[in-house]
Design a binder for these strands. Structure first.
Lengths: 143, 143
DNA sequence: CTTGACCCTACCATGATGGGAAGGACTATC
DNA sequence: GATAGTCCTTCCCATCATGGTAGGGTCAAG
């Protein structure tokens, strides 16, 4: 299997396969006489592992740890679970952060009539800092 | 006001103020004879506007549009509202994406007993692709 | 033997931010 | 005035994962 076939089979682009090799995430692949990289099923499986981990939002740094555990037949599942839970925690933090942004924006958008007139509580808030949404005297403000 | 004071007053770091100037997001500040940048209240207000927009997740590209509307006294609030709703939509998409990751991970973590034994449905899933969580025959698999 | 599809390396770009170095400017204290 | 410390300036580098491009080699089918 050359890199293109491995890419198709694993869902990781050829570009990224080379990148992962260059950073040491995966070992250097074998080469043909012409210098083409060659991949076996086991390497494709490792690439799929990486792809799936990325799809779950793990940063490459954590995938390194996951791969080490994957290879280690005497691993403790507690270690894997810990990594997963850390990732869940990180996702929860980001979700909460974005939810807060969304709620604020939704609140502002709800207060904006969205017509042809220039008065806009959204701009008023952005220009004056949080908590001024209800100050109608400021809704006309620009710079 | 020099750049340090403007940074404190606006919540935007001096580093970022220079960056915004270099990319044209804000006009070039005036200078003292010695070459120090000088900022007036109105410029600090613009920086606060940018800061607040960033806090709501707007990319700088969109902030450019928001700033243009802010300056335009004959703007239509509908244009502002549209930008806000696009941003809300983008946030919703990202939240849903991360929520899906989290749910999958939570499901896998729940299935992992997390003890000293190597058997781990999380690794099994990562190694074999989605949907194999219940295949107990595979939970021991490594590379 | 040509053509097209693939592979190789090496470099550049992203987006928003921080870090740091080298050198000049201002301010407060002695 | 001198000196120390803090600020400013510009310029370069790093992040993180990914894509793009350019220039050149390889392979397989016609």
């Amino acid at each position: 299997m050359n890199i293109g076939e491995a890419a198709k089979a694993s869902g990781v682009s050829a570009k990224m396969i080379r990148y992962y090799e260059s950073t040491g995430l995966i070992p250097a692949a074998g080469r043909t006489d012409a210098g083409y990289r060659v991949y076996s099923d086991i390497e494709v499986q490792m690439l799929r592992f990486i792809r799936r981990s990325r799809d779950l939002g793990f940063p490459v740094e954590k995938i390194e740890e996951l791969l080490a555990l994957w290879r280690d037949r005497s691993r403790q599942s507690a270690d894997v679970k810990r990594l997963a839970q850390e990732q869940i925690g990180g996702l929860e933090r980001k979700i909460a952060e974005m939810q807060a942004m969304k709620d604020t924006l939704q609140h502002l958008a709800d207060a904006c009539c969205g017509d042809h007139r220039p008065d806009c509580p959204i701009l008023a808030d952005l220009g004056n800092g949080p908590g001024t949404t209800n100050n109608r005297a400021l809704t006309r403000f620009g710079p």
